[in-house]
Design a protein around this nucleic acid. Sequence first.
DNA 1: AGCACGCCGACT
DNA 2: GTCGGCGTGCTC
Length: 804
Amino acid sequence: MIQVAKVIVDVPTMQTNSPYSYLIPKQLENEIQIGMRVVVPFGNGNRKVQGFVVKIEMETINTEKLKKIESLMDLEPVLNTELIQLSSWLADTTFSFRVTCLLTMLPNVMRAKYSKQLKIVNDQISKQQLAAILPSTSWDNFETDELSTLQQSELSNLRKQGKIEIVYRVKNQAQTKKIFQIESRLSVDQETKILASLRKNAIKLRQLVHYLANHATKITQTSLENKLNITSATIKIGEAKGWLIRQKVEQYRDPYKDVKKQTLPLTLNQDQQHALDEISQNIDKSQPQTFLLEGVTGSGKTEVYLQTIAYALTKGKTAIMLVPEIALTPLMVSRVKGRFSKKVAVLHSGLSDGEKFDEWRRIKRHEAQVVVGARSAIFAPIENVGVIIIDEEHETSYKQDDSPRYHARNVAQWRSEFYKCPLVLGSATPSLESRARSERNVYQLLRLPKRINGHPLPKVKIVDMREELQAGADQNFSQPLLEAIDSRLKISQQSILMLNRRGYSSFIMCRDCGFVLKCPNCDISLTLHMDSHSMKCHYCGHEEPIPKQCPNCHSRKIRYYGTGTEKVEQELQLKFPKARILRMDVDTTRRKGAHEKILRQFGEQRADILLGTQMIAKGLDFPNVTLVGVLNADTALELPDFRSSERTFQLLTQVSGRAGRADKLGEVFIQTFNPDHYAVQLAKTQNYENFFRKEMYIRHQGKYPPYYYTLQITAAHKEEKMAAKKMYAVLNELQPKLSSQAIILGPTPKPIARVKNKYYYQIVIKYKNEPNLHAAVTKILQESQSDYRQGIQLSIDAEPQSFM
DNA sequence: AGCACGCCGACT
DNA sequence: GTCGGCGTGCTC
């Protein structure tokens, strides 16, 4: 009987996806704990890899064969048992590797860096000889794949002969930020004596002595330098003379140190109070109930969130709040910080790796009780959770689009059950899945139907672009919209213009009648494939030539649809030479903090028009904006995706909410080629309920979620044939294991069939109840390891956001 | 991922 | 006859 550590090694393959047993060296016996990262020897060459201890147990058999843990990477566990358990579930439900899941839960800096070092064994080969193969400058750190095949084989031979050795090293990237702290050693009465001993012109030193003698509190070196306008040289002299002590201390990189304004809870209206009471009761009862908080824009959802969190805190519990990864993240963060100040830790992609690491450590050390962040914040190492909130729960950014392809909502549900705490999903336009669940009382529906200040919703006008084009308007701006912009410029009110960029690439539409070519079998828009010069349906594989004239009205103006923000900006500037235009898209916001800068500029009314992509649709709140224009409502609508109506409705509803606050009535223009489409029509009146009914009916007809579950399997390969072949093989293996109720779409090429020189083929399975599916897919994935050698990558996405 | 083993072709 | 190609299996 001997203690053995079960370790998940950092080798993301199917065959190494279960724990390996390692002996625990005597000197680590009392140190090692579950959840720590370790360095272990692995494989034939005993190369060093990072691993996670997931279990420590007594083992009796074959222990002499086991290798030893090399070293510990942490002094305390980085993962608690809850998160280790969660990682198991996550790997299983998302069909991904355990390591990948474990690493996803941790800040990036916990990902080990590996390096390889060449060493000559016992002078068996001269340095010159080795340098002839590989320059000595790279002996300390080289990458095998950067070497030529000749170099590789020569080094490999030398190694086999035992003349050289390759030392593998695991480097921990997790570094804490250290700063110098200064502590005075002088008392007031020493000042005159020391000053007397100094030269008269030693101005800086005199300043320093004066300061030290009169300030007993500790101060950081940088702020002391700034305060007295001195340099580190002066401080070092002070240290040498014994006037002060300099100490290295750990410091958190605080990304939001400027936010200080404290806010107080607002009085709730009846609906808000009711929602708060219902959720609070479940906090008290430790009920893992999921709530759907459906509230129109401006109905005060945020205040309900904040008071719910406050309630959890009074009960000695903690809270997680997720916000979508979009422009308004900083806004929401500052509101939460404003209420709970130092208790809040923030985790989102705008932070540097170091900052994320520090926030993560604050949570881990129980220094923060409230976590606000984007998708991955759902893995925050917070304990004793009292409530989890997901704001704008319908947002697609909650689903990760690479492995592990998890949905934060599902993880939240898992944790809510673990901690027996309520989960609140909030949205003005809930996802159909969530709304349907509340219909069946799986979730409890809470409604906030009234806007807090009783402001009317803005007037929404739908502009029929077919007519406008016929009347001679240009592609992007209709006459009514231009007039509206002009009128705002004249009275110095601001406008927001949104250009929908989603799916810019792929479909063809008639400019005269708005006709979009659809698949005769699937009723989904056909996608333009420039490589094959054809229109394809990627659901069923139907293919036809690119039409030269519109099948509906025989116009020749049927063409590829899409525009860029930059081009629109130029056109706009041409039309309104005096207007100050701010552009906000991926190009102008690439730099850190660029988002905030643009929004601040606009908020300070240093621009008249904000032109942007979807990122401006959400949550922005500028009182002087009285006009919102959606330039092209259709791009999202005509995407070959069953969720396109839902997306369009959500987007239009949200962007409409941006116009007109307080005393100024807002106006919204939606330019569309599909003025009669129900998503457009119902967004006009912000009628979510009717949209929900209508869309549910359509999903029911088409056998789509939420009536059916979906699973997407994709194969990628350099050669189209190989990818297709693999998918047919998968189909053949899978089909016999499914019931006749399951619907299999495909195999079909993806709409953008070739990305990064790889071809993608997929099948989508729609099903209601398939007990064998999970096991069958897991098996296919395991077997796919042999194909991996041939360069075939298989990936599985349970409940994909779209089939694209 | 990376290393060893093992089985076929072009060479001293 | 052997050196070395890379297909295949395995890693506690």
